[in-house]
């Protein structure tokens, strides 16, 4: 529950613009509108891990297009709670992004 409220505040705050580029995992947030009083204001689809669903086993540092979806405009790695990636895959993703940064495939910070 605490996690949910955190999500809501982060989506409303100024951090909203720093979301993932291919924001398909965050897209359907506003979809539907359960008007139950006191309950949830809107329906939120359960986030799923992209790597588990699409059966991507190897997170390769050379695959910039894939990694770019999990890097914010500022160059930061998007946290798990926003993208829905599971823990083992986020770990692999993190190392891959860091390797890609090292060889100048991804930026350390935004645009220079």
């Amino acid at each position: 529950m605490a996690e949910e409220t955190q999500q809501r505040t982060s989506s409303g705050g100024p951090g909203g613009q720093g979301g993932p580029r291919g924001g398909d995992s965050r897209g359907p947030r506003s979809a539907g509108g359960g008007g139950r009083e006191g309950g949830r204001k809107y329906f939120r689809r359960k986030k799923v891990c992209k790597f588990c669903v699409e059966k991507i086993d190897v997170v390769d540092y050379k695959d910039t297009r894939l990694l770019g979806q999990f890097v914010a405009e500022s160059g930061k790695i998007v946290p798990r709670r926003l993208t829905g990636v599971c823990t083992p895959h986020q770990r692999r993703l993190t190392t891959a992004i860091k390797q890609a940064r090292n060889i100048a495939l991804l930026p350390f910070s935004g645009r220079h």
Partner: peptide
């Protein structure tokens, strides 16, 4: 390249 390295904006990648 994603950032400037030794004042170069581009680079030839070899794997």
């Amino acid at each position: 390249m994603a950032y400037v390295v030794r004042k170069f904006q581009d680079g030839i990648y070899v794997l």
